[in-house]
Amino acid sequence: MLIRVPSRYTPRPSEITPPEVYRDRRRFLQMGLAAGLGLSVGALHGPARSSTTRPLAFTAGPFGTDEPLTPRQDVTTYNNFYELGTGKSDPSRNAERLVTEPWTVTVDGHCLNPGRYPLEDFLKPHALEERIYRMRCVEGWSMVIPWVGFELNRIIEQAEPTRRAKYVAFTTILDPANLPGQRLRVLDWPYVEGLRLDEAMHPLTILAVGLYGETLPNQNGAPLRLVVPWKYGFKSIKSIVHIRFTEQEPPTSWNKATPREYGFYSNVNPDVAHPRWSQRTERRIGDLRRRPTLMFNGYAEEVGHLYAGMDLRKFF
């Protein structure tokens, strides 16, 4: 059972800028900049937004932040999505290589109601909310992104996991014929991720289907992705085709690749340094100066209790 207690982060509905307004502002700024330079916006910013995104109907959700949103242009052109290429701008350039229709989601493992669903049927029962979350990449940069989605716990309740279910495992689409990055052996494909069941049930954990009021661009993990805002970005697995309830801790892609560097939990933690990067500070995209990184990415009040008594240096 879940009781939603509004926290200090909960924005009033009136605080959320309607998507038309921020889109207009963005367009206005781009037009002004382009006019001033005598350049076209396309030439300035490279590929424009994907034409396949569609507006979504949603309400404002809890856990918001009043920090300025990272511009949509940055959210959709600076991505780690190795299936579409390992450079930051590769995913937006190769976006059309991800085939999202038709899309099937399989739910199975230790649960009473397993199933295979066409995406529309999978999403239909769930009303969408906007969640404005901080996103902290393990590489030391961060963004503020207005996601659109619903709480993962709704899917879990519907699936009715059995007592043996202790973890939830997720898998990204495997399609090396189309996805250029899956023809490189940079990771063991398909990408897999996992959460402990209580982490997956937490109201902060969402399945996102959109951002900035529209369906997800392919480079952001269309048509369905996880968002776990208190963990490093790579935990928020993109383009999910499979959700499985497991008894054992499921393997996760980066942990398999370099276990010393990426743990199963991968909670944002300024006190535990990555062997290659100090995690004390981060650069918010658009800022010149770094800022201190907050414990659990600033969501300690909401999620700290999940890790009470755990040695977070050992379970990094």
């Binding site: 900049l33 910013h45 052109t77 600076y78 930051k88 701008s89 650069r283 995209i285």
Partner: peptide, 8 residues
């Protein structure tokens, strides 16, 4: 953006 230096 003006210098073509990208998002970061």
């Amino acid at each position: 953006g003006l210098g073509g230096l990208g998002t970061n």
